[in-house]
Simulated assay, not measured.
Amino acid sequence: MTTPPAAWAAADPYATALRAGRGPLFLRRADGWLLPLDVERWCARADPVDLDVLDRCEGAVLDVGCGPGRLVAALSARGRTVLGIDVSATAVHRAMRLGGEALRRSVFDPLPGEGRWDTVLLMDGSIGIGGDPRALLDRVAGLLSPGGLLIAETAPVDVDERVEVQVVDVVDSPMSDGAFLWARLGTPALLRHAPRTRWTAVAHWTAGGRCFAALRSRSASSSAEPAKSTAVISSHRVRKPSEDSPVPSR
């Protein structure tokens, strides 16, 4: 598969907002529709809703589209093996400053530990990466170990759309060459896109006005039970954004 353009990473308003820790910041469609992006929450510490998600994670965790790294840092503080990936250098550096491991990488690039991650996170709209939900779900299935867990944050409305968007910090900004494909999915749409041959729906829930779904990759041994793990696994900080972080062999 061709790696999607890293237009998000090249969006200066995004990098500027992450450095400042605040917006305003929006995803803008060609028709002028705006989706506000919650930069302040992304740049803050993990909140109780986030922590509940992290309590559900199993084993080694890969946070896809980790942004400025609040979840990676929170899992690292628990002694968990966790790696964040993001196409934004600013996001990766911020995640590392918080004490997490992170790589500047697209989910469609070669990644450490492919096929051996126990949990993959797609939070804060990352289910939209690439604008092709089925392609993303196929890729995630290949990253997980057999029976591994995907936890995805979904849109709080029943939506299923693939659109061209741009990151902007002003409401009247015109579309430019920085536009890229994105998807928005509610939980029903996510479950429709997850082929039953590869995924089993485990749970879905709403907390703090945010919506989530958990899917387990299919294997002969998977139990499809809601996942909670108290396992503590040591981690080792990645010193540079370009370095790979090892995942323990299974």
Rank of each mutant, 00 (worst) to 15 (best):
P4R: 01
P5Q: 05
P5L: 10
A7P: 01
W8C: 06
A10L: 15
A10G: 11
D12L: 14
D12N: 07
P13S: 10
P13R: 08
Y14F: 14
A20K: 06
R22Y: 12
G23H: 04
L25T: 03
L27G: 03
L27W: 07
D31R: 13
W33K: 09
L35K: 08
L35E: 09
P36T: 05
L37P: 02
V39T: 07
R41M: 02
C43H: 04
A44N: 09
A44K: 06
R45I: 12
P48Y: 14
D52C: 08
L54A: 05
C57D: 02
G59H: 04
A60L: 05
D63Q: 01
D63L: 00
P68D: 03
R78Q: 11
R80P: 01
T81M: 13
T81P: 04
V82N: 01
G84V: 02
A91N: 05
H93E: 12
R94P: 03
L103T: 01
R104S: 06
S106I: 06
S106F: 08
D109R: 11
D109H: 13
G113P: 04
E114I: 07
R116N: 11
R116K: 09
W117S: 04
L121E: 04
S126M: 05
I127N: 05
G128F: 00
G130N: 02
L137D: 04
R139W: 07
V140I: 14
V140G: 02
G142P: 01
L144G: 00
L144R: 00
P146D: 15
L149D: 13
L150A: 09
A152R: 00
E153G: 00
T154Y: 02
T154Q: 03
P156F: 10
V157P: 03
V157S: 14
D158V: 11
D160K: 02
D160T: 05
D160Y: 02
E161V: 12
E161Q: 15
E161G: 08
R162Y: 06
V163Q: 08
E164W: 14
D169G: 09
D169W: 06
V170M: 05
V171I: 11
V171W: 14
P174W: 08
A179P: 04
F180W: 09
L181S: 14
W182N: 04
L185R: 04
L185P: 03
T187L: 11
A189C: 12
L191N: 01
H193A: 08
A194C: 11
P195Q: 14
A201T: 11
V202E: 02
A203R: 14
A203N: 15
A207E: 15
A207Q: 11
G208Y: 05
G209Q: 10
R210E: 10
F212M: 09
A214C: 10
A214K: 02
A214I: 07
A220K: 12
A224M: 12
T230N: 12
I233W: 04
I233H: 07
I233Q: 11
I233K: 04
S234W: 09
S235P: 00
H236M: 15
H236G: 11
H236W: 15
H236S: 15
R237I: 04
R237A: 12
K240W: 14
S242N: 07
D244H: 10
S245W: 10
P248L: 13
S249K: 13
S249P: 13
R250V: 14
